[in-house]
Amino acid sequence: MTTDSKRKGIRLPRPLAIFVWAYMVWNLLPVVAAMAFSFNATRSRSQWQGFSTQWWSGTPLSLFDNEEYTAALKHSLELAAMTTVISTVLGTLLALVVTRIRGVAKRPVNFILMIPIVTPELILAVGLYLSLTFITVWPFSVVELGTPAQVVGQVTYTVGFVVVIIRGRIAVLGDGLEAAARDLGAGPIAALVLVLFRLLMPAVLVGAMISFAFSIDNFVITQYLSSDSSTVSIPMYLYTNARGGNTTPALNALATVLVVTTLLAVALASLLYRWATRRESVASDVTGTVALSA
């Protein structure tokens, strides 16, 4: 080995390191600053004028005391709960089935599963909106704009990602364990439940957390399929009020809640995954992260 043991590849001049750290600062500092502004002492969201928690709670306009904010918080959590359950269940079943499909159906099925992932959200949203408003037969007639439509839209958007994550796990496991269980006398369905579901659990949990994070952060679909002000989610509220609107630092507090919730969900997902797969050595950090991201 001729190269430096710590640094791999070609050493580029020092400025590159500075550039990378500058990028990190550029990337993160505004968000940190915006979070900090939720503790501003005055109404301003652009000038720091002292520390206070008045925008978080205690005053009529604060995050936890103003109905507009609490309603958005509650609605976002409701949507996320429903989306997480439905897309995890559907995604797990689909992942199991898709890995078994042979023959002619294989390609079209894979193609359809990829559609929501490679389509701009706006187009998914427009399609769903149009079909819900123009088609009068079941199931389109029973899904009303507002919460039901928003859940349908969010699940449609997230379930593909859940499938990708769980499929990845199934590919690593192979079908050998299931067969081994059967060879030991378990019936096929018992084998599936006992072995596969137990081994798939980490991936299912990751899928659930990812759905949760996607749902909480989702803006385009949620906005397009909303009905009225009772179905406003946190990102929708941020969008309407970011430029003019209800511009107190309570808005920053609301955004902070959004960010912290998402990051907690993702952190939890990756910790759970590591804990559940602690006896296997899985892919490195990078691939792990990207598996979460892809």
């Binding site: 990378v20 990190m24 990337n27 993160l28 505004p30 968000v31 600053a33 915006a34 502004f37 301003s44 969201r45 652009s46 000038q47 994070a213 909480i216 952060d217 803006f219 990102p235 941020l238 969008y239 970011a242 430029r243 808005l251 920053n252 955004a255 959004l258 960010v259 998402t262 990051l263 993702v266 950090d285 990078v286 992260t289 979460l292 991201s293």
Partner: peptide, 29 residues
């Protein structure tokens, strides 16, 4: 560094725009 990259990845896009709106305001930093 990877963790630092992951944070904005999972930070709401709208929040990240909101952050810049505050900084780029006429009286912003």
């Amino acid at each position: 560094l990877i963790v630092l990259l992951t944070i904005p990845f999972w930070t709401s896009y709208l929040m990240r725009m909101l952050a810049w709106i505050g900084l780029l305001a006429t009286d912003g930093y």
